[in-house]
């Protein structure tokens, strides 16, 4: 049985989204990745933004590599950087696990600060994506920086966990068409992305 990869911990949360500080600099899941956190209940989130930055918002990173031969040299000559720079991901809440199974709607209570955040296993992604009831909320979500990129990435990742990837993408395409009635150009672009 494969184990989920623990990405980091929740450092900020609300009922619709949460921010995760990754344990390791530059080691984060891509946008569109399904993650889980908490135990009671377990929450699901979709990564919609990844950022690398200074841990202290008042301290900007400055160029340090003028005399270095390569980028690795910058980190070797400045070992403190690994402690002062962080990778952070933002996730939109897309559901939670209840006794009845997976519910694809935001939960009323946000995850606790310091909740461990793990990348979902293929089986979990397959189970979660067997229904796409959360798509309308995600398509209209105002918090996402690039909704369609997040959705198409999620659908492509999910398709690989299903026995018949094409069949899954056709199902996803139909759901998109239903929810993007009247937005032909946007629908067309999304369909192009997931048919790559």
């Amino acid at each position: 049985m494969s184990l989920s990869y623990r990405i980091g911990e929740v450092v900020e949360s609300s009922s619709i989204q949460f921010t995760v500080q990754c344990y390791d600099l530059y080691k984060s899941p891509n946008i569109g990745t399904l993650v889980k956190c908490g135990d009671d209940p377990q929450l699901f989130g979709l990564v919609y933004d990844v950022s690398n930055k200074s841990m202290d918002p008042a301290r900007r990173a400055v160029p340090r590599g003028r005399n270095e031969n390569n980028e690795e040299g910058v980190y070797l000559s400045n070992p403190q950087l690994s402690r002062l720079l962080i990778t952070e991901i933002k996730c939109v809440s897309v559901g939670y696990k209840s006794i009845e199974g997976i519910e694809q709607s935001p939960i009323s209570l946000p995850p606790k600060i310091h909740s461990f955040v793990l990348e979902c296993l293929d089986e979990e992604l397959k189970e979660f994506s067997s229904s796409l009831d959360f798509l309308p909320t995600l398509l209209e979500s105002a918090i996402l920086t690039s909704n369609d990129e997040v959705i198409s990435s999620f659908l492509l990742k999910s398709s690989k966990t299903h026995n018949d990837a094409s069949q899954f993408l056709i199902y996803a395409g139909k759901e998109l068409a239903f929810n993007l009635n009247g937005q032909l150009i946007r629908l067309n672009n999304l369909l192009k992305r997931i048919s790559k």
């Binding site: 980190y75 070797l76 070992p79 403190q80 950087l81 402690r83 002062l84």
Partner: peptide, 12 residues
């Protein structure tokens, strides 16, 4: 604490 060279690291 800053260790430079091989296996460089920092502890703050």
């Amino acid at each position: 604490v800053l260790k430079y060279g091989n296996n460089s690291f920092a502890e703050l």
